[in-house]
Each structure stands twice: as structure tokens, then as C-alpha cells.
Design a binder for these strands. Sequence first.
DNA 1: CTCCACTGGTTTACCGGTAACGTAGGCAGA
DNA 2: TCTGCCTACGTTACCGGTAAACCAGTGGAG
Lengths: 331, 331
Amino acid sequence: MKASLEDIARVAGVSKMTVSRVLRGASGFSDETRDRVLQIAQNLGYVPNRLAAAFGADQASTLVGMCVPRLTSGLFGHVLDGVDRALTRLGFQLMIGANNHSLAEEEAWIRQVVSWRPAGLILSGRTHTPATVDLLRLSALPVVEIWDLTTRPIDLAIGFSHVDCGVEMGQHLIRRGRRRIGYLGALARADVMGAARLQGLQQALQQAGHPLEAVEILHDAPGFYAGYYGLEMLLARAPELDAVAFHNDEMAIGGLAWCQKCGLRVPEDIGIAGWGGMEAASILPRRLTTTQVPTTAIGKAAAEALVARLQGANIPEVTVLPTRLIPGETV
Amino acid sequence: MKASLEDIARVAGVSKMTVSRVLRGASGFSDETRDRVLQIAQNLGYVPNRLAAAFGADQASTLVGMCVPRLTSGLFGHVLDGVDRALTRLGFQLMIGANNHSLAEEEAWIRQVVSWRPAGLILSGRTHTPATVDLLRLSALPVVEIWDLTTRPIDLAIGFSHVDCGVEMGQHLIRRGRRRIGYLGALARADVMGAARLQGLQQALQQAGHPLEAVEILHDAPGFYAGYYGLEMLLARAPELDAVAFHNDEMAIGGLAWCQKCGLRVPEDIGIAGWGGMEAASILPRRLTTTQVPTTAIGKAAAEALVARLQGANIPEVTVLPTRLIPGETV
DNA sequence: CTCCACTGGTTTACCGGTAACGTAGGCAGA
DNA sequence: TCTGCCTACGTTACCGGTAAACCAGTGGAG
């Protein structure tokens, strides 16, 4: 970690500027000089100092910050994967943080990350504190908001409409003959996007003349077990339901487990619908009715849009990557 | 993003050194000066430049790099979560990367990250290329290797023994009366740790006098569907098996789905065992026999050990966080 | 009355790169 | 022969912080 450009320059008998040029692959040196410098850099175990490079020249650093609601979410794992692969390929580094569905935590995180002068940010969700928006606008950093579409993105947005997801599922349930429909959510008051899907669902059912009959929104994280005991709670309150839409697939699978345990037949006695399109949904004895979300594609698109913008390309403000309702066999 | 210490200093009528001290909460200024400086910093929308700080003073940066095999793994999501929460609390930033089970990709990633002069690294796994090890030793960076225990860690190690996991599961299967046991793996030749578990399993079964009868190691990622069709392949080749141990819970659940599909009763006709302890395992109609891994705890411990080491504390070289075999009802 | 320590600062140097600009030598074309 | 341009460098300045050294005034001890 000791060797610097200076050290290489001294040994090679050139100026450190020449070394810098060689190592960056710029021009302005002979083949002979290049070979000598590279050889010496190798021998000295030179490790470039990006801190100095990014700091000294105000040139774009290769740091990209990304903030997700939770790191334990299967869906966001795939988004992260898409981002990571694209960024790695393009030579960028990923700084990551979770906001636990809290705008205040997001703001704190962004404040930290911005102080590292990243090349850009990827945020999930469209809702931010006013201070966050001010900070981002002031910093003039490229920002991609993913996962949900903002009416007016801070900079760029890539995703889909959660309200539309809800509407689509509502219409599907009605088409399949369901009339007494309930909803089981999670992360009460913290998750804006789940709320948007619920809103879409309500809207569609209302319009069809069969308004949502029961809603239960748990405070827990949307996992298997929450779906399991949440469905029990919901059905205790509203035993007449003939279908339940869940916050996500994990919860829906938990719900299926509860149905199996107490002898409720799916879809005959009750319909079960998830959201997200996790892999497990497709190998259940009956394929889960769900909405497939283009997770990896969103991550990849976000990373690529960010980098393209850095390189001055003209990117559309909003990119829609559509979701797809998978009918399945549980409704 | 414009304001610097200099700007604040000019407005406040003090030197930038004084501003620096105020903002860092060091000493050597009056209350009056402090209030004025803080007020002006606020007004100017000052955002500290950690790039400059970390670069200028060779003081520890607050960057921690972490490399995981895959970002889509449910288990590693929890590890990441543990790391992230601890680091956030301690005021550090997380840089992340996936190596896709490739030592070469890991080396490339580490090379990139080290050039950002991080405070330390968290790596998963004990196997690295020789060049990686050289680089890490040379850089004298604190390194925590998690998830598996190294006989001789580069610096610190926190985790458990995969071989022991395999042994324990083998003994459990034998105790439950299973005699003709098979194994279904994934990520052939890429996943060292799955191989270690298989090795432990083989060893225990051998010792019990009922050696492993069939092994199938898929090339795919260890997901639900791989378990589903993989079990079909395995049983086609070795129909007499009375139990199958899987690479992980996702695959085991996929295997369960296949059993259900073709009318095999679990555990009567065949025993199914997973590994990892994912939440879904506990809400299945029959609880899955599996091994629970302290994912979040490992992440938390790794982050805390790293920071403690940075602060000069004396940390034991190897920390074992034990796994726990959950008997379940599928064997 | 002198000396000293303490408070509340200032000044200077430096971290390791990169941009911008300067320059020596060689060669081609007018 | 002179001009202009190209190649292959070298020099200088600077990015925004922090450490370290230095300094002026003040109050108290001796």
C-alpha cells in the first residue's frame, strides 16, 4: 500500500505525470516508457488510490449509492443483483444501505453517502423527506428512483405503477368470480407501495360493485409466518371471504400453509393471491396466482440509465417496465 | 455542493481550521464561535467532503467493503442485514459486491475496493486466490472472513464449520432410521461450502456403516425449481433412497413440492432434509428438518469485530457461532 | 512583577492524484 | 531557412480536508 505514482516515477526515471498517463491508458508516452512503468508498478505492488483521484480531479467518481427498504427482501435481492452485475461490468462500485421503510433513515443515509461524492444514486420509492429532495436537487447528482413511478421524478424513474398492480389483481379476482374479497398487508404505515397496491385493489373492486370486505394490515415484516397467522386473524373477523389478496408472495404462501393446516381447500373454498412473482410461487402444488415483477431488469436498467446519464446520454425521464399478472391456480 | 470549509470560514471571519474543529466537535473554540460557524454551515447547506477527509489525513475511512457469493441468496440477505444495521449504528458505510462463487471475480472486486482505501473488509468464505491473500496481507487491512471457519484466517474469522453441519445431519438421518441416503447439491464446482457439507455428510454415513448411496450436483443456482426437478433426476437414478439431504432449504422445499406432485409421502416414503433454516421451513404442513444458521448474528458480529479491531481492541482470531439442527417432521 | 499554563485561535505543510500548460527535439512543407 | 506541428515528456497548481506547529492575550501562582 506504500507505493505511489511518485515512487514509480522515481524508479522509472520519469515524472509522476507520465506514470499517471501510462496507468490510465491516456496518451503521450512511448511504448518503451509504458512497458517500463507498467513493469515497475507491478513490481512495487502499486494499488491506485481512487480516493486521491476522485478527490483531486473533480471528475466523476465511480461510486454509486443505492438505498433499498430492506436487505432481507427476496425481491430486492434480485434488484440488487441486477444493479451489481451492471455496475461491475461498467466499472463502478456499489455503496448500499437499507432504510427500513423509514424516510428519516433514508435521509440520514443519503446525507452520509453524498458526503462521499458519488457519481450517482439509486433510490427505491418515490417518497422522500423535503430535506432529502432539497439535498438531492442542490447536489445535482444523477438520481434514479426505482420500483415505483413518480409522477415527477427528482431526476429519472424506472419501475411500474403499484396502483395498477392492485387494479389488475382486483379485476382478475372479479373475473374469476370472487365477490367477497379481503386483503392482508404488512408493515403498517411504513410501506407506501403496499398501500398503493391496496388502493388500486379497492378502486377496482369498488368499480365492479363488490367493494373490499375486510382489510388487515399487520405491523410485522411481510414474511411467511406473517401470512400464516395473519390469514387466521383475518378469517376470524371475516369468515365469509372467498378470496384474499396478500401483500406479497411470501405472505400468500404462508396463507396457503394455514389453509392446508385447517382444511380449507384452495381455490374451491378460498382464493389466494400474492404479489411479486417469487420463484417458489411456480412450484407449489397449485401455482400461485401472483404478479410477476421485473426485479433484475429494473436493477439492470437503473444502473445502465445512471451510467448513460453520466456519459451525457439523453435518458427518458420515466421508464416503465411492466409487471405481468400470472393467473396461477389458486384463484 | 459548493460550500467548503473555506467558504464557511470566510463568512464566519475565522480560519478554516477553526471551522474544521467545530464541525468535527474537536476542541479549541468558544461557544460563540461554534454557534456562529454551525449556523453558517447550515445556511450554506454545507455537505462535508469525506473524500478529502479520508484522503488528506490518513485516518481510518468509514468505508467497509463486503463481498458475498450471491446477492439473491435469502440467507446472505440476512447476513447483509446484520452487517448493515451494525455498521450504520457505528457510523460506517457499506460497499458491496457479489463474486458469483468465483475466486477470480472476488479478486477483481477486492482490487477495486482496496483502491478506495476502506477501513476494512468482510469476505465470505475461506478460499481466495493467492494474489488476493498477498494483496490483503500487504495492505494490512482488517479482514473478517465469515460464514466458514478458516483453519488459519487471514485476520479474523466468524462462522461455523460446514463439515460439522454435514456430520450432524448425517448422524441425525441415521438416528431416525434412514439407511439409503442421497444428496442433492447445486453450483457444481463453484460452491466450496456446499461441498464441505457433503463431505461431512459422507463421513458420518460412512462411519455409521451406511454410506451415501447417490449424489447429484446440479450446475444451477440452488433455488426452489432446482430442488424440484433435481429430486426427480436423483430418484430416477436411485429410486430406492429413503432420505435425501439437500444443498439448502429452498431446494428441499422444491423437493417437497415434487414429492407432493407425484404422491410420495414425506416422511413415510422418503425423508427430506434442508439446510439454512429459512423462515418458510417452519410453516410447512410438516416442519422441514433443517439446520438453522445464525445469519444475522454472524453479520452483526462481523461488523462489530471489524470496528472493535479498528479501535484497537483485542479480538479473538476465530469466533464460532454455532448452527442448530432443527429436527422437524420431514425425516 | 515575572513566568507559566491555558484558551482560542492562525499558519503552514501535506495527502496522491489530475488538468492545464510549457517545452525540447524532430521532421515536413513552403 | 524558417515556420508550424507533432511527439513525448516535465512543471506547476490545485482539489478540501487534517495534523502539527506556532502565536497572542489572559489570569493566576510564586
